[in-house]
Design a protein around this nucleic acid. Structure first.
Lengths: 344, 344
DNA sequence: GTTAGCACTCGTTTTATCCGAGTGCTAAAT
DNA sequence: ATTTAGCACTCGGATAAAACGAGTGCTAAC
């Protein structure tokens, strides 16, 4: 459908525009080393490409800019793998070289590297620890009215809630409950805890605890899944450097959207494994109209537990960003697997 | 030094400018109800006020804008207490009405309310829990190489580190260490834990644990003060609505500065009790040149443990903001004291 | 099929002009 | 001795016209 020359010209225009953020004219294309045709020839092809919806003009006598469709084609068919430069490589290496003890630390680091190397904004979700298994639970009374429930998983993840203490609970009972929970629930994945509470613990509790109803609901509260969606951003302010965001209103819309944690989570939450590339209006949300989002899930023990991603203008360095996101998602998965494996 | 009329005029100009963000002319001042003088009279006083450094012109025939010195005078001498409107009052009340179980929750809420009611950005530090006392420590091994140390304080605050496990440590010893620590360190304030480790625990450890050196340094690591400075922001994007920040570069400088957590912490960390008002260049940092920062410490059991503050343009609604910050810092202190008191 | 030549388009930049809010000064009024 | 009215003057901002130039589309020659 497109001739080789048209593809070559399209690619040149896209890459030029990614660099310059300015409409690209036929003359500047013809000057490139890889191009041997005259401006007039290029103009002809450009006109065709525009007719096919790959190029656009900002006004009738301007150079062309790539359309969303062009970026899509570029990403799907024209992209060559990117070779990281020396310092970039070092940067990435060092991220995964140091001894990392906590998952969250690794995840935060990744967000930092992502934004630093791309000069766009990075978003990192998770890791969701639903799959981790309970290693230990501790319920510590704080005064008469409240207690702190601390859950430690086999991945070293710690979660805690403060829970109101039912007044009927007797002194020793809290300890007893803790013991029962530890005995019965150890090794159970977090997301099954509530269910297991009923199937495994309920009856035992009935036997040993006086006000069993109150104790049960108290325990249920203590085990409740924290709906805390962990989102880390890196280099939000990088976006302000992009010429497409010199308009304050557009920036505001974008930054405000990024505060909406549940939306961002919904958008990026790890479902199927792999990489997602959303260009411009492929993001349904209006504030992302002029953005592209490139994201990839990372996984723990083969299961996707989180997402890393980059938000930048549609005029994005796709080549570099895609490689980087890809690379880091693998790296991060490996780090997490190492953390996880120490359990066995 | 200043006549009453000059003060009145100055105040009118400041308040007008706070509203309009536009240079104020003599005519518009003379139209106000509280003012009975003609524009010419006002012009004379304005000239004097300019000579004294309280007013500035943007160009030779423009109206006047208040100088930094004027805001300072305004804040120090002209400010009347602000009466909260009905909905504002409700908002504040509701913040402190609900049953709050965790300090951090209260603090985050406060940041939200602050920015919502002011339409500026809020910064909240802390609470620093150095003064809280150890209630319980738990060391949970995660695989062969690492363990999670979980510290719960009497204020319900939970802190955890992952620590590398010395290979020489024997199976039961970890439990023994945990027991010793709980026995000897309970009730000791967090900031004294490391010291108490040496004075109270060291010798006991020596007696019971084989590789005492390794165990000690392991324990020390487990108890290390987390240097995690907790900073919560609210309504950063509000700043983008202010006309003085329509310039993207200025916004970027500001937002980038706010990412520098240690700087912000240094700037706002709670030292002496009470309220601080920094106007314009009184903030030494260049990015805050056009900002004012109003902050107040909040306290727990009489000791300052954190700071709440507002960042806005120098043209800020001082009256409202000062009252609000003041009010909320008291309220927050009370909430925390309630949380704390439940211990006794 | 490709390219050179050329008229044409249209956003950007520059220059000129006008407008009016606001000032400072002087002289009259209180 | 203040306060005020009157008036010439200043200067940024808005508006219009003109010059500029990067880039196009089309036609005719290669």
């Amino acid at each position: 459908m497109l001739t080789d020359r048209q593809l070559l010209i399209l690619q040149s225009i896209i890459e030029d525009y990614i660099q310059s953020a300015e409409p690209v004219g036929s003359r500047s294309i013809s000057k490139k080393n890889s191009i041997t045709f005259s401006p007039a020839t290029i103009r002809n092809d450009m006109a065709d490409l525009e007719e096919l919806g790959f190029l656009e003009k900002t006004h009738s006598s301007s150079g062309r800019i790539p359309s969303q469709k062009a970026y899509r084609l570029y990403v799907d068919r024209l992209l060559l793998p990117y070779r990281f430069s020396e310092p970039e490589m070092n940067n990435i290496q060092s991220l995964f070289a140091g001894k990392i003890l906590e998952a969250e630390e690794a995840v935060k680091e990744t967000a930092g590297i992502l934004s630093e190397l791309t000069s766009y904004a990075s978003i990192v979700l998770g890791p969701e620890m639903f799959e981790s298994r309970l290693r230990q639970i501790q319920i510590v009374p704080i005064g008469k009215e409240a207690a702190v429930a601390v859950i430690v998983t086999d991945t070293g993840y710690v979660e805690n809630h403060t829970v109101a203490l039912p007044p009927t609970l007797e002194a020793g009972e809290l300890e007893q409950i803790t013991n029962i929970l530890n005995e019965r629930l150890r090794g159970i994945p977090l997301y099954q805890l509530q269910r297991a509470l009923f199937s495994e613990v309920r009856d035992v509790l009935k036997r040993y605890v006086f006000n069993y109803e109150a104790a049960l609901s108290f325990t249920e509260e203590a085990l409740r899944k924290s709906r805390h969606e962990k989102i880390f951003y890196g280099g939000k302010t990088n976006l302000l450097n992009q010429p497409e965001f010199k308009d304050v209103d557009r920036v505001r819309a974008l930054l405000e959207l990024m505060e909406e944690e549940h939306l961002i989570h919904e958008l990026l939450k790890p479902t199927i494994n792999g990489m997602t590339i959303r260009i411009g209006q492929e993001n349904t949300n209006e504030a992302f109209e002029h953005c592209s989002i490139i994201s990839a899930t990372y996984s723990l023990a083969g299961k996707p537990v989180g997402t890393i991603g980059i938000v930048g203008p549609t005029r994005m360095e796709y080549q570099k960003v895609i490689s980087l996101v890809n690379h880091l998602s693998y790296g991060l998965s490996n780090v997490l697997d190492d953390l996880y494996r120490r359990d066995s």
